[in-house]
Design a protein around this nucleic acid. Structure first.
Length: 586
RNA sequence: GGGGCUGUAGUUCAGCUGGUUAGAAUGCCUGCCUGUCACGCAGGAGGUCGAGAGUUCGAGUCUCUUCGGCCCCGCCA
């Protein structure tokens, strides 16, 4: 089928084009047939332009336009006219195209949902017809922004002397970290490649090679459960630098963020960003990725309750636990039922219970009131700057549980109180530093790397590796924006002996270490430079730049929470011959 | 692995303690309509109540199984 190719797109015509003869191609956004007058809104990526057909003047055109319905693809030739009634809501609202000739390039079945930004279709349906969902301007805009981020990344790092180098997607499966996606080898039956969880080791090897500054926008794969901000395949902006310390990497990336925000959103952000130690982040905000757009800070209450008769608190203190809380400002009117809800919420995070003190109508009510001395109450009022109508929420448990649960409650209260809504449009970046090097894995009864096993210990904590590994801090840093971890990195181990020791502490035998990471240990013997880097989650970055709270909105063809692609029905069974060729049996 | 919510016209939803022919809005179809842009007016068509089994005189509604979707905990170096 032939068609007249467009001379303009559907978003560019303005009143200064009046009188021009143009050809447009696009999709029928809507059609309004008034009988003696037919309006068609034609849509493409660039915008919407109104076509007008007058059956009285052009009966043949009207005849051709008769079967036109939503989402048909058309070409239309005509003259740009000023509208009789201007639509100030549309960029092209001052003009319309008086159609002299047009035709259907390709008809469309009735779409299962309307192509509107004010979507009213279920996500299930949208995912099944993803190619239609992606016609919606709001969604297209997300990918335009995503592309802008990618382009700025290419140019920023190019200008700063970084080299983009591709690393393999078929690599060796390594222990530690996330579950690998495996790819069977046909040539070597019974053996498998793994898809990279990140190009971590390759980029370190590139530093050994002397590339000095590496960057890559790269897909990563992790076979773990999905979340609203997690997909099994996602994209990182991955970078590594040689002869650097933590401050050097932080400085480069602060400049990168400044440029991104300027060029994508037109916003000047202030650098350098604040830095918070992991310990301070946990003890003030109950999170290693604190949202600092609002206060409601947590406070340790062990002092106040040092001699309490309330058994739960006393036991916590006796077992070196933490009693802490925060002021849920203005929530003093919460009912028993609502407080029960909050208690259930806290329990999801491991808390065994939730204590509260309500300050309402100049009186105090609390299940633990009888244990509170007047002095305690005064102290609490002072610490939390309590006003009438406030609610104190208190948890006592071990350090991690107390702070984690309070941190989750803090966010929940902020959400319920409309605080999150009110700080929209603010961008609070911060670095979280001084992470512990190890975490104790209760199930496996061994230390596991909090970041990854190539992370360099803090120089001043090197001795702790032998005496008290749990206290050793890592030379690692996370970049956090508005409570979202958008990236993390570390200075790496460039010394073979230190790396061996690390594997040893992580419970790998020398043989295991050599089997899995021998090539890295080998490479470290040949003059590895001091190096370090960082990886940003591109998808999460784009989420924040577009203001969406769901990662599926920034990935063109995402999976559902159970890992299915509803559009193409993957994963799917394969032909028995394919399995045979791979030497696999199900 | 666990918890919560959810599946009813094309779509978004309502549907009470189980009870006549399962409704609304919107979309769709037909007709009318010369300034619409959420066009308007009149009429019409449209249902395996996710699937399967069970209880019952009778199931959209109750029970069990199962398949999906969304959110969270665990998991995600």
């Amino acid at each position: 089928m032939t068609f007249l190719k467009r001379s303009k797109n559907c978003g560019e015509l303005r009143s200064q084009n009046i009188g021009e003869t143009v050809i447009l191609n696009g999709w029928v956004h809507s059609r309004r047939d008034l009988g003696g007058l037919i309006f068609i809104d034609l849509r493409d990526r660039y915008g919407i332009t109104q076509l007008v057909i007058r059956p009285e003047l052009t009966p043949d055109v009207a005849e051709k336009a008769k079967p036109i319905r939503s989402e048909f693809v058309l070409w239309a030739k005509g003259t740009v006219h000023k509208r009789e009634s201007i639509n100030s809501k549309m960029p092209t609202g001052e003009i319309e195209i008086s159609v002299e000739d047009c035709d259907i390039i390709n008809p469309s079945e009735l779409p299962p949902f309307e192509i509107l930004d004010e979507l009213d279709a279920s996500e299930e349906l949208r995912l099944k017809y993803r190619y239609l969902d992606l016609r919606r301007p709001a969604l297209q805009n997300n990918f335009i922004i995503r592309n802008r981020v990618a382009q700025i990344t290419h140019s920023f790092f190019y200008e700063n002397n970084f080299i983009e180098i591709e690393t393999p997607y078929l690599m060796k499966s390594t222990p530690e970290g996330a579950r690998d996606f495996l790819v069977p080898s046909r040539i070597h039956k019974g053996k498998f490649y793994a898809l990279p969880q990140s190009p971590q080791i390759y980029k370190q090897l590139l530093m050994v090679s002397g590339f000095d500054r590496y960057v890559q926008i790269v897909k990563c794969f992790r076979d773990e459960d999905l979340r609203s901000d997690r997909q099994p395949e996602f994209t990182q902006i991955d970078a590594e630098m040689s002869f650097v310390e933590q401050d050097d990497i932080i400085a480069v990336f602060e400049k990168f963020f400044k440029r991104l925000w300027k060029e994508v959103l037109g916003i000047e952000i202030q650098i350098p960003f604040p830095r918070l130690t992991y310990k301070d982040a946990m003890e003030n905000y109950g999170s290693d990725k604190p949202d600092t757009r609002f206060e409601m800070k947590l406070h340790n209450l062990n002092q106040i309750f040092a001699n309490t008769e309330f058994q739960v608190f006393a036991n916590t203190i006796a077992s070196n636990g933490i009693i802490a809380g925060f002021n849920a400002k203005g929530f003093g009117s919460y009912s028993r039922k609502q407080l029960d809800e909050l208690t259930e919420f806290a329990k999801k995070y491991g808390a065994k219970g939730l204590s509260y003190i309500k300050f309402t109508d100049n009186s105090i009510s609390s299940p633990i009131l009888k244990f509170l001395k007047q002095e305690d109450i005064e102290n609490l009022k002072q610490i939390f700057a309590v006003e009438d109508g406030d609610l104190l929420l208190i948890i006592s448990d071990n350090w991690r549980t107390t702070y984690t649960a309070l941190g989750a409650l803090r966010l929940e209260i902020a959400k319920r109180g409309g605080i999150i809504e009110s700080v929209k449009g603010q961008y609070n970046f911060l670095w979280v530093i001084d992470f512990p090097l190890f975490e104790w894995d209760e199930n496996a009864s061994r230390w596991v790397a909090m970041h990854h096993p190539f992370t360099s210990p803090n120089v001043s904590d090197l001795d702790l590796l032998d005496t008290n590994p749990g206290e050793a801090r890592a030379n690692a840093y996370d970049i956090v924006l508005n409570g979202v971890e958008i990236g993390g990195g570390s200075i790496r181990i460039h010394n073979e002996q230190v790396q061996k020791k690390m594997f040893d502490l992580l419970g790998l035998t020398e043989k295991q270490a050599n089997d899995k990471f021998g090539f890295l240990l080998q490479a470290l013997k040949y003059g590895a430079p001091p190096h370090g880097g960082i990886a940003l989650g591109l998808d999460r970055l784009v989420m924040l730049l577009t203001g969406t709270d769901n990662i599926r909105d920034v990935i063109a063809f995402p999976k559902t929470t159970s890992g299915l692609s509803l559009m193409d029905n993957s994963p799917s069974e394969v032909d028995p011959d394919q399995l045979r060729e791979l030497g696999l049996k199900i």
